[in-house]
Amino acid sequence: MTTGIVIAAVIAILVGSTLQRLSGTGVGLVVAPVLALLIGPALGVFVTNSTTVVSGFLIMLAVIRDVNWKRYLIFMPMALLGAIPAAFMVREVDAAWLNIVIGSVVLISLALTFGTPRVPHVRTHALTGATGLVGGFLNTSAGVAAPAMVMYSKFSRWNQRSFAATMQPTFMTMGIFSVGTKLAVGATTIEQLPPWWLFPIIVVTVIAGIRIGAWLAKKVSMDAARRVAITLAGMGGAVAVIRGMAMLA
Rank of each mutant, 00 (worst) to 15 (best):
S162F: 06
A217K: 13
Q160N: 14
F199W: 15
Y152H: 13
S178G: 15
P169L: 06
I212K: 00
V150T: 14
S109Q: 03
G213I: 02
M149I: 11
S156D: 14
S141C: 10
L198R: 04
I202P: 08
K154D: 05
T188I: 15
F155K: 03
T124P: 01
Y152Q: 09
V179Q: 08
G132L: 11
A165Q: 11
S153F: 03
A142I: 05
I201Y: 03
F155R: 01
Q192L: 09
T128F: 08
F155Q: 02
A148G: 13
P120E: 04
W196F: 15
T140L: 06
E191W: 08
S178R: 03
N139C: 12
L110G: 11
G213A: 11
P147E: 01
G213H: 10
M149H: 04
G175V: 10
F199D: 01
K154F: 12
V203D: 07
F171M: 14
T124L: 02
W197H: 13
G186H: 08
A165P: 06
M167S: 02
T189F: 00
I207E: 08
V150P: 01
T189V: 04
M151F: 13
H121R: 14
T131S: 14
S162A: 13
I176G: 05
G209Y: 09
A165C: 04
F114T: 05
V119S: 09
A126E: 04
V185M: 07
Q192T: 13
M151Q: 02
I176T: 06
V206Q: 03
S109T: 10
A165T: 05
L183D: 08
M149S: 13
A214T: 10
I176A: 12
V134W: 03
W215L: 12
Q192F: 04
I207T: 10
S153G: 09
T113V: 12
M151G: 06
S178C: 07
G213P: 07
A184D: 01
R157D: 13
V203L: 14
T128V: 13
A187T: 04
V204M: 13
V144W: 07
I190H: 11
V203Y: 06
W196G: 00
A217N: 14
A130G: 14
W196M: 13
S178D: 12
L112S: 06
T128C: 00
R161C: 01
M151I: 15
R123V: 11
